[in-house]
Amino acid sequence: MISVRLEPENKDVCVERAKTVTQLLHALGRKPGRALVIRAGQLLTPDLNLRPDDHIIVRDVGSRG
């Protein structure tokens, strides 16, 4: 179970069965290139593997006015 903080709405969700950053973004309805994916203060590229106990920040980059 990967715990995810969604920003900027600051909402916490859990995601099961996401082995890579790409799969995580897909599970969250997001796409690479539209959100930063951050683990332990480091940016992650879409190909990287995730661990079940990861704490991830997914920060949407689209400005909304």
């Binding site: 920003e7 900027p8 930063l36 951050i38 940016l43 920060r59 980059v61 689209g62 400005s63 006015g65």
Partner: peptide
Amino acid sequence: EFETANLCFIAGIDYGHAP
């Protein structure tokens, strides 16, 4: 936008995203 967001993160720039 993705590139400027990455630039801010890597440069340590704390920015607002309240719409």
